[in-house]
Design a binder for these strands. Structure first.
Lengths: 334, 334
DNA sequence: TCAAAAGTGTTATCCTTACACCCATGT
DNA sequence: ACATGGGTGTAAGGATAACACTTTTGA
């Protein structure tokens, strides 16, 4: 019972905050967007923030039900697909200047929703590549990688790790290889690994804000890669992006982002928007049709800019037919 | 700031408990084991319980550091690989008879550790298939599936869902197909889905304990499938098993369960123990060697019961060479 | 001698990838 | 006419799965 009293002590510790964060994704005009709340709400300060809410077990039976409830209340949005990502609990990340480092435990969620056209209260859709410009390879390798990130990360890798840095199984240079594919291939799923590297190297605004010493080492260049977010919300978003990119391949999640009827072109462009790479058209179509993921509805769409396209719908039956139904697409150039 | 006060209210809600649970896995004698604490500790009652501890942000910088600390203190064990699984927060699952339904938020972890030979304080190793006998297909399809589970689940699927049951995207019969492969193939990764089905159908002791009405429908047969655990710990264990089985295929996790030098036979038997299926020997060896996952050390082991076997070690370099290094093994019969 | 496990080699099949090419519509 | 997207066919290459067979030890 000593355990119990220690437990109660931990719960009543005024340092702990506990809440839910949601990365709510929608695709518009071939661009993935996430829902961010207006600055100033819920202690987010000057920065874009993911919708945040407390969890009250008295009101809601499960975490997910609680999440759906306050998202609805805060933004008016009904969520479709919802999935828990990770529970974040690092201390010191959220220290605002002049404030003691507090501790926030936040359970991060990924949510997908169709067409983002509704009137929203106190929130708006923001393109996710604004926060991660190095993740969009659809126009080829992003300039920001070649010009800003790679040279700085290489310099950082050559510096010795500081004493207070935790011992890691991989050395810095190897982590660059794995994360950014420097000297190897770029793996579009490793969004979080890349963000963590930039954070540790002091190349994102959050690192400077949290008082990381590495952030001071870049002098007045002040790189500020990508648009920063409140607290550790960009880390949550990175987790969401990586998870979504990975899960697309073995779970039929894209269809949560599309209307009930769609062309194969729209399907492909949505997948490309999420994964940040271009796909081979012919093979994609074959894969998706003969994989039994979709079926023609019989209708056609003439608003395609070319020959009218057949409309398709998602075949819900695949999930009981195949163990891992998804778009097993290789990030193949064109 | 209305958000803030609601937040504080949620934190100080005496109904919320917050803690960490760990499914600590080790493989001995070709059997996976998990670490369970003696009954009576930490409110576990009569049942086997996963090691549990509170999280104190004052003492520990991150959740994972906190976990390692109290596991060390409670059991004397130093953890190797540690990975967060899921944060569980369903209400009503833990209602002990005569007690009001409280609410436990617990962050579940998966941990892997080598050889389980040490003296442990207040904990012991328990074979994981004792809790999930239907998950071990190494001697062919388990009898308990054919004789106990399948007939009862089929009967359950034919009954109409009760009114208070949440609306689900799949009907019961389809969920059986997906989870247990009734009429299709058995997917060894879907451990949690299967446990949830058995729970909903009232076929595990936890369901009766939680007062699920379905549990009463089986009369005095009292099936009691598998060994029950405290609270929702069997659900956490099911999550851990599914995650480990899945991750084995694209991450080199097995080596965390093996000594630094091992024979290919030992490697195969460890993979088989985890996945619960048998593998084709020749192809396994080819896969593992030419996949660059291991390299010979030059030594041989004569204690194999047959011709002496070469000893191998894990090639750490693969993780920087290949994006998803793992044992992509199909659950092929022998 | 036999059981048990270590090894090697070969073949058929399927899936992925890449390339080449034609079709229908709007401007 | 041409740009844009829709749609079909096929061949090369690599990975997988299944099979057959030899070798080396301990009991």
């Amino acid at each position: 019972m000593a355990e119990l009293s220690r437990l109660i002590e931990a719960i009543e510790d005024p340092q702990i905050e506990l809440g839910l964060n949601a990365a709510i994704v929608s695709v518009r005009d071939q661009q993935p967007h996430i829902l961010v709340v207006q600055p100033g709400i819920a202690g987010s300060g000057e920065w874009d923030a993911l919708p945040f809410g407390p969890f009250s077990p008295r009101a809601h039976r499960t975490l997910e039900i609680g999440l759906r409830a306050w998202v609805k209340r805060q933004t008016g949005l009904d969520l479709g697909y919802v999935e828990q990502l990770y529970t974040f609990g690092d201390r010191g990340r959220h220290a605002e200047p002049g404030e003691a480092a507090s501790h926030t435990l936040s359970v991060g969620y990924l949510a997908l929703t169709r067409g983002a056209g509704e009137e929203l209260l106190g929130a708006h859709w923001s393109p996710w590549y604004a926060y991660f410009p190095w993740e969009d390879w659809r126009q080829g390798k992003p300039d920001i990688l070649t010009q800003e990130i790679e040279p700085r990360l290489k310099a950082w890798a050559e510096r010795a790790p500081s004493a207070d840095e935790p011992v890691r199984p991989l050395r810095r240079a190897d982590r660059l290889r794995v994360g950014f594919g420097i000297g190897a291939g770029f793996d579009e799923e490793k969004v979080l690994e890349r963000y963590e590297l930039l954070y540790e190297a002091g190349l994102v605004a959050e690192a400077a804000r949290d008082g990381r010493q590495a952030a001071g080492q870049w002098g007045d260049e002040l790189p500020l890669l990508g648009r920063p977010m409140a607290l550790d919300h960009r880390r949550i978003l990175a987790t969401a992006m990586g998870r979504l990119r990975g899960k697309l391949k073995y779970r039929p999640l894209v269809f949560e982002l599309l209307p009930p009827e769609f062309t194969l072109y729209a399907l492909q462009k949505t997948v490309e928007a999420i994964s940040g790479t271009l796909l081979h058209k012919q093979n994609f179509r074959r894969l998706v049709e003969h994989g039994g993921l979709v079926e023609p509805t019989g209708n056609v769409s003439t608003a395609t800019g070319g020959r009218p396209a057949k409309l398709y719908r998602f075949r819900r039956e695949v999930v009981v037919e195949r163990p891992a139904p998804g778009l097993r697409v290789k990030a193949g150039r064109v």
